[in-house]
């Protein structure tokens, strides 16, 4: 527990490193600070969502409505921003409204899962469909671009510290905060416990419903943050821009070593999973390979990584059942 990198994370890190070395040989552009920062910036929204998803998956749940919730918050924030004054207070308001909206939607998911005991996949599928429909109805599928945003937001969007974009900073902040939450707070440990064994959790007095509602609300909260990051990154609101992103989010978490059945998953692993997906994508672009191959490659990587993981797990289980046989 003390070592920051556990063996599984080390193996993902190795794959990331190998891939990076390979790409450095293939394209001189790859290993430049600019390109690497671009990769991270381009995947920060994915990263923020994946961190929330890690929590959900650790409890054994799943949330396929994340991309839809993020889109919804984007659209609402876009509409509000048009009417906002050009002062820093607007940014503060965005950071209040966005996450609150997200929490509200996430909490609905959580309550339905915990209290009415509908499986998470069903609840969040329903939520996704409803939101996607409403978003299209409200926007007619139309783009909202930067010309209608207050200029303070555009300034915020291009804010950098030592060349590191605000979008990346938001990702880092979310990662640190969630890591702390998971490792050092009671609720974080309860999340881990529930994923490990639900019956045991109830027996030692953990409030199962409460933790589930928390996890989905937290996912919503991060979707709210991700919506701000997304709007800052694209400087526009595209109601269709995130269709299907939930699959990438789940993929990143699984690649990062989380167990889809619950109980296993780390923030560090998920970050590595996000990086891996980002680097593959970047590499394929640098190598000028058609974009549709990206999906194919991503899929193959996921299957390979998860199979490898599963085989390792089975091996370790087999070792446990060894008996000393007399020669």
């Amino acid at each position: 527990m003390n070592s920051i990198l556990k063996s599984k994370e080390i193996s993902i890190a190795m794959i990331v490193a190998l891939l990076s070395i390979l790409l450095t040989f293939l394209s001189p552009v790859f290993l430049t600070a600019d390109n690497l920062l671009d990769v991270i910036k381009g995947n920060a929204v994915l990263g923020i969502l994946a961190i929330g998803m890690t929590m959900v998956i650790i409890t054994g749940g799943i949330d396929v409505s994340v991309a839809a919730v993020t889109s919804a918050v984007c659209v609402i924030l876009g509409k509000i921003m048009v009417a906002m004054p050009d002062s820093p207070i607007s940014i503060v308001l965005l950071f209040l409204i966005g996450p609150l909206l997200g929490i509200a939607l996430g909490a609905i998911n959580g309550v339905l899962v915990a209290k009415i005991q509908i499986p998470a996949i069903v609840v969040t599928l329903g939520m996704m469909s409803i939101i996607n429909g409403l978003v299209l109805y409200i926007t007619n599928g139309q783009y909202l671009n930067s010309s209608s945003f207050p200029s303070v937001f555009l300034k915020f969007s291009s804010f950098e510290v030592f060349g590191v974009s605000i979008v990346i900073l938001m990702f880092i902040a979310v990662a640190l905060f969630t890591w702390y939450l998971l490792k050092y707070t009671l609720i974080g440990r309860e999340v881990m416990a529930i994923g490990g064994n639900k019956d045991s959790a109830v027996r030692v007095g953990i409030n199962f419903d409460k933790v589930q509602i928390f996890v989905f609300s937290y996912m919503g909260f991060l979707a709210g943050i991700a919506a701000i990051a997304q709007t800052a990154y694209t400087k526009a609101v595209d109601p269709n821009g995130m269709l299907g992103l939930e699959l990438m989010v789940i993929a990143a978490v699984v690649l990062g070593g989380a167990n889809i059945m619950g109980g296993r998953g780390t923030i560090m692993g998920t970050i590595l999973g996000v990086l891996l997906l980002g680097i593959v994508q970047n590499g394929l672009i640098l190598a000028r390979i058609d974009t549709f191959w990206q999906k194919v490659f991503t899929g193959i990587i996921i299957l390979l990584a998860v199979s490898y993981d599963h085989i390792q797990y089975k091996r370790s289980q087999e070792k446990l059942s060894k008996i000393e046989v007399e020669a």
Binding site: L186, R189, E190, I206, K210, F214
Partner: peptide
């Protein structure tokens, strides 16, 4: 289980 009645943000 020792802290199940404590505040969720209690530090572990």
């Amino acid at each position: 289980g020792r802290d199940s009645n404590k505040k969720p943000w209690k530090k572990v």
